[in-house]
Amino acid sequence: METLAARATVVPEAAAPRARRRRSALPYVLLAPAALVLALVIGYPLVRLVLISFQDYGLRALFSGRTRWTGFANYTAVLHGDEIVPMLVRTALVCVAMAGGTLVIGTGVALAMRALGRRMRTLVTFCLIAAWAVPNVAATMLWTWLFQPTYGVVNWLLRLGQYDWTAHTVSALLLVWLLVVWQSVPFVALTLYAGLSQIPGDYYEAAALDGAGYWTRFRVITVPFLRPILLLVTVLSVIWDFNVFNQIWLLTGGGPDGGTTTLVVWSFRRAFASQSYGQGAAIAVLATALLTALTSYYVRRLVRAGEAW
C-alpha cells in the first residue's frame, strides 16, 4: 500500500474515486434511510409550502382546515412594492460581505492551523469551538451587551463614549457583520482544516523532493485538493448568510429606518409577523428560486467536482 499511495502523488484528480459502473440496487439501499427521512420531514412539508403559496392561508385556515385558492394573489401582493429593489441590493451586498469575510478569515485560520504546532493548534481549535458553541440567542444577547452604548466594553475599549451602534446604518450593519462572521468562521475553518488534514503528507514530501517551494506546493497540491470542500463551504456560506435572520432581528430589528432590512427580515415583517402563511410561503418560494438561480452555476460545479467520470 505504501507504493500505491506514493504512486498517487501530486495529481489529486487521479486520486479521485472511480465509481463502480455496474448497475445494482445497492446504492439505492444505502441512500434509502436518508431519502426517507428527508421525504417525510422536508419533502412533504415542501409540497405543502408550495400549495399554501397559492392559497389564502392564515390563522382561520389553520384552525379550521378549510382553505381557499387564490391563484397568484400572494405572489403579486409580495412583488408589489417599491421597496423591493433597494432591499434586494442590500441583501446581496450584506450576503457577499458576510460570506466573503467568513471565507477569507476561515481559510486563513485553516491554513495557519496546518502550519501551527500541536499545542497552538489545540488552542485555536478550542477558541473556534467555544465561539461556535455559544447558542444563537445568547450570542446575540452577548453582542448587544458588548456593544451596549453606556456599559458595553467595546465602546470603552475603543474610547467611543456612548456611541449607539444600532442608531446608524453603517455601524448597525457592521455590528451584524461582526456577529455573523464571528459565529460562522468556526465551521468554515474547522471543515477546511479537516479537508487539509486529509491530504497525505507523502504528496508534500514527494513535491519537496522535486524541489517545489511552499507556494508551488500550495498551488499544485493544496488548492486542487481543497477545491471541492472550499467550493462547498462557499456555497453554504452564501446560502446561510443570505438567510440570516435572528441576528439582524434581535440586534437591530431591521432598523435604523429600515437600514438593515434584508429579504428575510422583510418577509418576516410582511408575512410571518401577521400570520399570513400564504404570503410567507410565496416569499419563501421566490427567495429559494432566486437563490437557486444565483448559485446554480456553483452548485453544478460542486456536483461535478471530484467526479472523475
Binding site: L49, L236, W240, F242, G280, T288
Partner: peptide, 9 residues
C-alpha cells in the same frame, strides 16, 4: 433544501 428560509417551513 438548505436555501428555503427557515421561518417558512
Amino acid at each position: 433544501i438548505q436555501m428555503i428560509p427557515g421561518p417558512a417551513l
